[in-house]
C-alpha cells in the first residue's frame, strides 16, 4: 500500500490558538451585544478556511470591525491582558480602502499567526480593523504600554512587513490615553 507522509495529512499547527471576532454597529444594542465570536483556529489550514470564507474588510459596511485575538483575550480594553496595554495604530485615508485596506489587514493577520515579532510575539494580544466612512483604522494591540523594548520591536517589524517607507511614522497609544482623551486625537507614547 502507498504510504502517505505525515506532512500530507497533518495540518500545520500555529504557536497560538486565535479567535476571530466581528462587531456590527447596532445602536439599539449595547457595545458588547454587538460583538460576536466568529470562530477559533490553531492551524495554518484552518486560518485560510476561515479567511477565504468571510467578507473582505473592504466589503463591510461602515461601523463594522474584525478583531483577531489570542484565545482567552477578549477584544476590549477591559480584558486583563489589554487593560495596561496599547496599540500601534494605522489610520487610512478614504482612498486607501480600495488600494490598501485588505492587503494591510491580511499582512497584519499573517504577522500575528506566524509569530513575526520573534521573542516579543508574546506581547502581541491581537489586532483590530475598524471600517469607517471617515477613514478605516488597523491596529496591533500589545499587552503592556510600559514595555518599550517589545513595543518598538513590534512596531519596527510591523512597519517593515507593511513596506512603509522610513519617512512614514506610525504611533503607539496606550488604551488609557485613548479612553480618556478629550479631543479627537490621542498622544503617541512611542513612534517608529
Amino acid at each position: 500500500p502507498e504510504i502517505v507522509k505525515p506532512e500530507h495529512y497533518i495540518k500545520h499547527p500555529l504557536q497560538n490558538r486565535w479567535a476571530l471576532w466581528f462587531f456590527k454597529n447596532d445602536k439599539n444594542k449595547t457595545w458588547q451585544a454587538n460583538l460576536r465570536l466568529i470562530s477559533k483556529f490553531d492551524t495554518v489550514e484552518d486560518f485560510w478556511a476561515l479567511y477565504n470564507h468571510i467578507q473582505l474588510c473592504s466589503n463591510l459596511i461602515s461601523g463594522c470591525d474584525y478583531s483577531l485575538f489570542k484565545d482567552g483575550i477578549e477584544p476590549m480594553w477591559e480584558d486583563e491582558k489589554n487593560k495596561r496595554g496599547g496599540r500601534w495604530l494605522l489610520t487610512l485615508s478614504k482612498q486607501q480602502r480600495k488600494t490598501d485596506l485588505d492587503r494591510i489587514w491580511l499582512e497584519t493577520l499573517l504577522c500575528l499567526i506566524g509569530e513575526a515579532f520573534d521573542e516579543h510575539s508574546d506581547d502581541a494580544c491581537g489586532a483590530v480593523v475598524n471600517v469607517r466612512n471617515k477613514g478605516d483604522k488597523i491596529a496591533i494591540w500589545t499587552t503592556d504600554c510600559e514595555n518599550r523594548e517589545s513595543i518598538t520591536y513590534i512596531g519596527r517589524i510591523y512597519k517593515e512587513r507593511l513596506g512603509l517607507p522610513p519617512k512614514v511614522v506610525i504611533g503607539y497609544q496606550s488604551h488609557t490615553d485613548t479612553a480618556t482623551k478629550s479631543g479627537s486625537t490621542t498622544k503617541n507614547k512611542y513612534v517608529v
Binding site: V4, H8, Y9, I10, K11, H12, P13, L14, Q15, V44, E45, F47, W48, A49, Y51, N52, E107, L110, I113, G114, E115, A116, D118, S121, R161
Partner: peptide, 20 residues
Amino acid sequence: GKKRYDREFLLGFQFIPASI
C-alpha cells in the same frame, strides 16, 4: 521551539484544499 511561519510559507497554503 516557537512555531514561526513567514508570510510566503503562510500564503502558500491559501488555496490548498483542506487535507484528506
